[in-house]
Amino acid sequence: MNIRQLEVFRAIMRDGTITAAANSLGISQPAVSKLLAYLEDQLGYPLFERIGGRLAPTTEAHILYGDADHVFRQLEALSSLARDVGASKIGLIRIGASLPLAYSVLPVTLAAFGNHHPEVKIHLHTLPKREIAEALSLGDVDVGVTLSPILAPTMRVEKLFSAKVVAVLPATDPLAAEATLTPSMLAGRRLISYGSHAEFGAALDEAFASEGQRRDVSIQIASSVGALPLVRQGLGIALVDELALWSPIEGIVSRPFRPTVPTPVSLTINQARPQSRFVASFSDCLRQAFAGASQSSIGATAEDSTAASRKT
């Protein structure tokens, strides 16, 4: 039994006559009769009997028809899916992202991307940079978005945004009145920040050492996302990437930290792996999201926004 014979059998069952089946399939009546005869010969039993000049399905034909119809409906669905994939209507993009980016710029980015490609499935993996680099190398993700570049021979890196470390503190803290904060100004305060062995920890240690200070971290965190509830609870001042306050949070403000400690946002693809057709569109949406953020103030709080509107 082959697909063509099964197709003829299904058409006769559905249309009732060989003539109608031939018309629906776009082939001749003799071709339909011949294919049906071959099928019955292979099966070893008849599928139709002629009663009063008409074809009547046998019991065996009724038994086979349900599964035959199901098979062809699946084939038709597969053909439709293949056409949609070819027209870029349906697909998949797999994104590896650092946690702060997943909580800040990516929701805006993915909303814009979804408007352009509503049928495309998105797999978002929030991972440390080391694991994102590994996933890119293995081809488990199509694109990586991290707070620093992934450096490897086959990786193509694009710097998207010049983020920096900021001080995040309660709006009621006296230091919130300062335009910028320095290591000397933070002396004696409880700090919430990355460990010295973390990617930006060493740079922060050097910034403190440049003013003769020692960075004494009271609460060590792995991601800036985890710092915000701690600051809100009054447990200290956080020195974290500015993406932590991408959206305003009532009662919390951020202030520039000097000396500057950069945390550049990078987009990375592995040129040694086949690329999803949707990486370019996703990248465009990500660039637009950062362009919009550059025109506003990342981390502006309700208090800051109100003050700014009064000045204007």
Rank of each mutant, 00 (worst) to 15 (best):
N2G: 05
L6T: 11
E7K: 02
V8A: 11
V8E: 12
R10I: 03
D15P: 00
T19I: 06
N23K: 08
S24M: 12
I27L: 07
I27E: 06
P30D: 12
V32I: 15
L36C: 06
A37E: 08
E40L: 01
E49N: 08
G52I: 06
R54Y: 10
R54E: 14
L55P: 01
D67A: 13
F72V: 04
F72S: 01
E76C: 06
L78T: 14
R83I: 12
V85R: 09
V85T: 11
G91Q: 06
G96T: 09
A97V: 06
Y103V: 01
T109I: 00
T109L: 00
G114F: 01
H116V: 09
V120S: 02
V120Y: 04
E131S: 13
A133F: 11
A135Q: 15
V141C: 13
P153L: 04
R156D: 12
A167V: 01
V168Y: 04
A171L: 08
L175F: 01
L175T: 02
A177Y: 05
T180L: 07
L181C: 05
M185Q: 14
G188R: 10
Y194P: 02
A198S: 09
A198W: 02
A203I: 01
E206N: 07
F208P: 03
E211W: 09
Q213K: 08
Q213T: 04
D216K: 02
S218M: 02
A222R: 03
A222I: 00
S224I: 00
A227G: 13
P229S: 11
V231E: 10
Q233S: 15
G236W: 09
I237R: 04
D241H: 01
D241T: 02
L243P: 00
L243S: 13
F257S: 03
P264E: 10
I269T: 09
A272D: 15
P274S: 11
Q275W: 05
S276M: 05
A280H: 09
L286F: 08
Q288D: 13
A289M: 11
A291P: 00
A293Q: 08
G299C: 01
S305D: 13
T306S: 14
A308Q: 10
S309G: 03
